[in-house]
Every structure is written in structure tokens, then in C-alpha cells.
Design a protein around this nucleic acid. Structure first.
Length: 295
DNA sequence: CGCCAGGTTGTCG
DNA sequence: CGACAACATGGC
């Protein structure tokens, strides 16, 4: 049976079926019949910043290991993983969750959401490392995605550990907590330097405890995250959704504001229900891929 | 040069 | 409460 070290809800029948479709051999995991998952959409829809696409293969880092992932139609191949990490990998890509079911329910809510969901139907909400998510989205504020990726990469190269040639882990909270703004200047994050350091210090001291945040109700957890200087509603929502998998989160950035105004007649986020976060990601991706709508 | 980018903070009315 | 400039940096 599936053992997960984190509090995480999932459909047991769905997860069991998924496990039966997996084959592990020579550090490679093969998963068949992943009908509702699209690796590329999931990794390039703006929820994560470190995966790189090289010749149809995505290279990223999970549990301090360099992972290669590729998809051929309904089959997913994930290589260079250890047996003990299999469940973490499946969890990272959120393969235990039935997105077909979520999509069918969301589509009833609004016709434009149905269109966005159909366009972005292969997206899964990842289970990323919460600290990495926190720092990455602090960096994201008033910034664009290519530059966010550059700064995050620079942060890892300067302050992470080299795991394989040219591949660095995301730096720990304790390392970042000890830096001065001047020392952090090498990553060119500008005014966000002090926000990054404050976040690292509050995580390192235990004032912000991600496992504890999992136990709090959504509003309380968001308020707790906002104790960090430089974390407001939007960054907190991103941490809760992409790092702690709180699916009711609905980060409102410039794209979402534009979309809600032009396409949803300023509908309130609460009306998207308990999977609002999935709706948000569908709408965000759909909007970014259809810029012409907003000109 | 100005404007924008997966925002937040501080200030002023 | 709401509005609004300032905040580093780089691309266009």
C-alpha cells in the first residue's frame, strides 16, 4: 500500500490503479495510461521555475536528485530515481489525483472556464518543496518569468550544493538566513534581497513551520505566511497552492485580474469552489497563451 | 526615454 | 478603508 510521509489527501482507488500501471527498473520509472496528464503543460505553465527542456526531455531536481522525465503519448518515463523516492516522485507530479474528475466539475461552473480547462487539461498542480516555492514566488513579484528563472538559478548556483556536474540543489533556509543583503546581491534580485533573507530567517527559526501550516485553516495559514516581509496575499496563495497543495488557493496576479475582468465579469474567486487553484491554473495558462484577448 | 513584469510596502488623504 | 508612488533589474 502507499505510504506517504506528508499529510495529503487522495483518492485511494485512483492511486491504487496508478500504482498498478507503474514499472520500476534500473532507476527508471515507467507509468502507463496517464491519460489526463501532460508533462510539458505541467512544467511550463508557470508554477515552477527550474525545469529545463532538452530535446524532448525535462531535467529537474526532486529530493536533491537530478531527474529526467519524458512523455510519449500516455506513457511517462522518469529516470535516475531511487526506489525509496518513487512515491515522492508520483506525489510531486500529483499523479494520485483524478484530474479528469476535477475538470468535469469545474467545467459546470462557467463556459469560459470550460474552454480554458479544455485547453489546459493536462496540467497538474505539483507538490513542490514549500521553501523553494516560497523563495521563488517572493522573487516573482513585479518580475517576469524568464528573469525569475534566471534569478532562481543564480541563487542555486551561488548558495546551493552541486549535486551533479552543473546541477545545484535549492539552497537551505539556514544558508540563506545567514546572508547579508550585500552577499545576496550577486543574484541581482534587487529590492527582494531583504525579503528573501527575512523569509529564510523565519523558516530557519521555526517561526514559519510548513508542517504546522498544513494543519491550519486556509486563512490562518495565509496570515502566518504574511508575517514574512515581502509576502502578501498573492505570494502566500502561491506557496499554499504550489508548495502545500491547498487546492482552494486562488493566486491573483496581473494575468488573473485581467482574465477575471474581461472573461468572467469579475466573478468572485470563492465561486470556483474547493478546486479553485486548478481553475486558476487553467485560466492563467489559457490567458498567457492567448495574449491577444487582452490587447 | 518610458513601460511592463505571476506584488508588497509605506504613505497620504 | 482606497489610491498611488517607490522599489532593482532587464527586455523591448
Amino acid at each position: 500500500m502507499i505510504k506517504l510521509n506528508k499529510t495529503y489527501t487522495f483518492d485511494k482507488m485512483y492511486a491504487k490503479r496508478l500504482i498498478m500501471e507503474t514499472i520500476y527498473s534500473k532507476k527508471e520509472l515507467r507509468i502507463d495510461n496517464v491519460k489526463t496528464f501532460d508533462l510539458e503543460q505541467t512544467l511550463l505553465c508557470g508554477q515552477c521555475f527550474r525545469w529545463k527542456k532538452v530535446d524532448n526531455v525535462f531535467i529537474g531536481i526532486i529530493n536533491k536528485r537530478v531527474i529526467k522525465a519524458r512523455q510519449e503519448k500516455n506513457t511517462l518515463f522518469i529516470s535516475n530515481i531511487l526506489k525509496k523516492d518513487i512515491n515522492d516522485i508520483l506525489l510531486y507530479f500529483d499523479l494520485f489525483t483524478d484530474y479528469g474528475e476535477i475538470k468535469r466539475n469545474l467545467e459546470k461552473i462557467h463556459p469560459v472556464l470550460k474552454e480554458a480547462a479544455t485547453y489546459a487539461k493536462g496540467i497538474h498542480i505539483l507538490n513542490q518543496d514549500p521553501f523553494e516555492t516560497l523563495i521563488s514566488f517572493i522573487i516573482s513579484q513585479n518580475n517576469n518569468i524568464p528573469r525569475i528563472e534566471k534569478i532562481v538559478e543564480s541563487l542555486c548556483e551561488n548558495f546551493g550544493e552541486e549535486i551533479e556536474d552543473g546541477y545545484y540543489s535549492f539552497p537551505s533556509a539556514s544558508v540563506l538566513a545567514s546572508l547579508s543583503c550585500e552577499e545576496l546581491n550577486v543574484i541581482k534580485a534587487g529590492f527582494r534581497n531583504r525579503y528573501i533573507i527575512d523569509a529564510a530567517q523565519k523558516v530557519n527559526s521555526g517561526q514559519i513551520d510548513f508542517e504546522n501550516l498544513r494543519t491550519l485553516d486556509y486563512i490562518k495559514a495565509r496570515e502566518k505566511l504574511k508575517e514574512i516581509v515581502g509576502v502578501g496575499d498573492k505570494v502566500a496563495d502561491c506557496v499554499l497552492l504550489y508548495g502545500l497543495h491547498r487546492m482552494e488557493g486562488f493566486p491573483m496576479d496581473v494575468w488573473m485580474k485581467r482574465a477575471m475582468e474581461k472573461l468572467f465579469d469579475n466573478m468572485e474567486p470563492e465561486k470556483f469552489g474547493k478546486y479553485a487553484g486548478v481553475a486558476q491554473q487553467y485560466i492563467f495558462h489559457y490567458s498567457r497563451m492567448h495574449k491577444e484577448i487582452f490587447t
